[in-house]
Design a protein around this nucleic acid. Structure first.
Lengths: 198, 198, 198, 198
DNA sequence: GATGAATGAGGTTTCATTCAT
DNA sequence: GATGAATGAAACCTCATTCAT
């Protein structure tokens, strides 16, 4: 990794929590340079503009969560476990998420929806990916007889994502972690209900 | 209502959707005066600064939802119905909410949490009020034998609010209303499960 | 004339010589505000950007010369005199031109040709207008028997404009006014040669 | 020529057209390094600053024209031909000049007159040299009886240079080469008129 | 000798706010 | 009470230049 790449990575890493906490419009270049202890020129030498840096920071922020989910799904050996990967992933890192400004996807969708299409597009990508993934797991589980035939993958995805994002947002804002813990229990229960025999 | 008060009210009413859509930092005074029939002088004659206007706009935005809940609770004649007032209220106005930039409470908590204490304090007020209200209804319902003794008002409030705010946020961002409809069904089911005999 | 229009006019008037002397890229907003004793905000309140101000300044600069030519042509009562309006106009104001940074058309075409299409388009407009005007006068003069049949209006226009712009440029750069005086004598001689009987 | 000198020469050669097209203030170091195969370090290793490079580029640009004139004068065997070297030189290379951003002397004098004394001094040097040269040729031609006694070398130089620079400028800006062709015909005619017997 | 990441000053533009009218 | 021209600070970004590698 050359010097440029190292600096670029360091800038992304250091600014990612700031962007997540303060939002795109609420984070100024001065906020960023104060944090990274480099000048504005250093940012513009490594990124075309604030937007590109914000996109990279968002990717970085999301990757933590996405990686956690992916790891758990890779280790799972049942469809239920693959679904459980979602609440489990958040359960294992929600403390980190809350300390870094909340769920980056929810933050981005809330702020950028009407103001920054590029950012919101990236966040939406993950929403769609996760919905599709959940739907496919449900179908596969039904085909193999592991999941109930009346389970609805589409609605399970919606309910799971809604509960979790709402829980994270409220836990962050109130400082009361039980918001997210309760939401994750709800989410786990929803998954459990799709099991044949429940 | 004198002329001054009428102007003030008109400004609040017209700027409220803009603030809700674009956020506090993302909405400039020029955005406000351009999009709406207003001059900067009119704003500064009626509000001490942008912040005061934003606070009033937030109150205005929240009042629509809070009013809807209050109305339904006033008309309810069972504790279950008083709890159902929450999902029912959102069910009846989620289209309006989505068209006006999403849930103002969630938006404010997401954006302003780390940047604007005054705004986030106001939004938090309603979260606490609703949680307390739900908890009290559950206790009263249990005392009167209408609700199950093992119902947990605290956790019901958390789950209800999380599901609904998550659902609104995702419906708004994806443009897919089924997100909020599914979340509201979940919420109604949670309430229903507290009924004795379920 | 409202206050806004007065300020706008004053800014144009005061900045026009600066732009003409230093060029578009060579004139900074700070140069401008120093000259006009107003803040940058005042400029941006009256013009959309630096470019719009530069365009207005260019129009203003050109209008002095164009006005002088127009006045003389209006007073002329022969085709020869209408042609002579070009050298005569420059003869009467070359001192002012030299003191204000040289010929704004030549300056703009030289600087902006490869860098600022909007500015150069405006300057080209006048070049084309004057060429066409000279050509039409020559044709009319030939039709009425005042000018020689072998006169070539197209080439006369080219030669007149080239001699004058070259003369102004060199006089300005060297500080030696005889450059422009010689060029204007040449120009007058060219016109004189189109007269029947010469 | 050592490696250093070769690099230095290559940089000058490659940047010269850019400077001539875009002007000194309008050409950034990034323009230079982007458009051409160069790094900033290479520039600063071989030149003290942008100014020095610009000066060398200007010398390089002018040398093409000056060289062409010199060659023709060296080959001439009459004073008329020595004077004709000026229009003839431009006639033979005006296409190259137009393709490289116009006459470097006129460009520099127009842009740098009020902003960059060092650059404009260099351009002025050539104006003065050529005027003096033309004047001397006229005097020598008169002494030998080849040129008319009433010819004015001083004014011929002024007229020649004004016509040619104006013609190049307008041809470049309008894209219409007949501007420079007409100006060169004028110039040639001026020279021809100094011949005894005309 | 050449590289290119980093600097710090300064570029253009927008911001929230004020105040003479 | 409302206007909107003007302010001054701060926004994002680019500049010529430097220096560790």
């Amino acid at each position: 990794m050359g010097k440029a790449e190292r600096t670029r990575a360091a800038i992304i890493e250091q600014t990612a929590p700031l962007f997540n906490r303060r939002g795109y419009a609420g984070t100024s270049l001065s906020d960023l340079t104060e944090e990274i202890q480099l000048t504005k020129g250093a940012i513009y030498g490594n990124f075309t503009d604030k937007q590109e840096l914000a996109l990279e920071a968002l990717k970085f922020n999301i990757s933590h969560i996405a990686g956690e989910i992916r790891t758990r799904q890779a280790a799972a050996n049942s469809h239920i476990d693959r679904l459980m990967a979602y609440p489990e992933a958040y359960r294992s890192i929600y403390r980190w998420i809350l300390g870094n400004g909340g769920c980056p996807i929810a933050n981005t969708l809330t702020e950028a929806d009407d103001t920054n299409p590029a950012l919101s597009r990236l966040a939406l990508l993950f929403v769609r990916r996760w919905r599709r993934n959940i739907d496919q797991i449900v179908r596969a589980g039904q085909a193999e007889g592991e999941l109930r035939d009346d389970a609805d993958g589409d609605r399970l995805g919606q309910a799971l994502l809604a509960a979790i994002s709402g829980g994270v947002m409220l836990a962050k804002a109130t400082g009361d972690h039980s918001f997210i813990r309760t939401a994750l229990e709800q989410a786990s229960a929803m998954v459990e209900q799709t099991r044949v025999g429940e």
